[in-house]
Design a binder for these strands. Structure first.
Length: 113
DNA sequence: GCGGTGACTGACA
DNA sequence: CTGTCAGCCACCG
């Protein structure tokens, strides 16, 4: 059973996320060639589990953790992100308030090609 | 084939 | 800022 090329693309995109940086499901899907495949990404991560994929770097579009607060997955993701230097607060990644943050702003890697 | 469900999103109140 | 709603896509019984 051949795996869909899209699944491979999604995996590659997630793998390409640099440490200390975060991406949204929609962004990942878009990069993989699936503009409406956010759910597809989530499903893939759920299926793959901890198969070497930095799933903890994938969040919802609003910067919130996909897992419900209090869930084991939530805690795990927060812990991993913090370990990489990502500022997480209230189950959501802190957004650079202004360009003056400098390094903090770069953590988001907005729209690099 | 059908309806329900979810690691989602964007728009609107 | 939070909460609700409809849309979308793949999987399951």
């Amino acid at each position: 059973m051949a795996k869909s090329g899209y699944d491979e693309a999604i995996r590659a995109v997630i793998l390409a996320i640099p440490p200390g940086e975060v991406r949204s499901y929609a962004e990942v899907a878009r990069r993989a060639g699936l503009p409406r495949g956010a759910r597809r990404v989530a499903r893939l991560l759920a299926a793959e589990g901890d198969a070497g994929l930095p799933w903890h770097r994938v969040l919802r579009a609003d910067g919130r953790i996909a897992f419900p607060a209090g869930s084991p997955g939530h805690a795990e993701q927060v812990a991993r992100l913090r370990a990489e230097g990502v500022r997480v607060e209230g189950g959501r990644v802190r957004r650079p308030p202004s360009p003056e943050s400098g390094l903090d702003a770069l953590l988001w890697a907005p729209h690099e090609a």
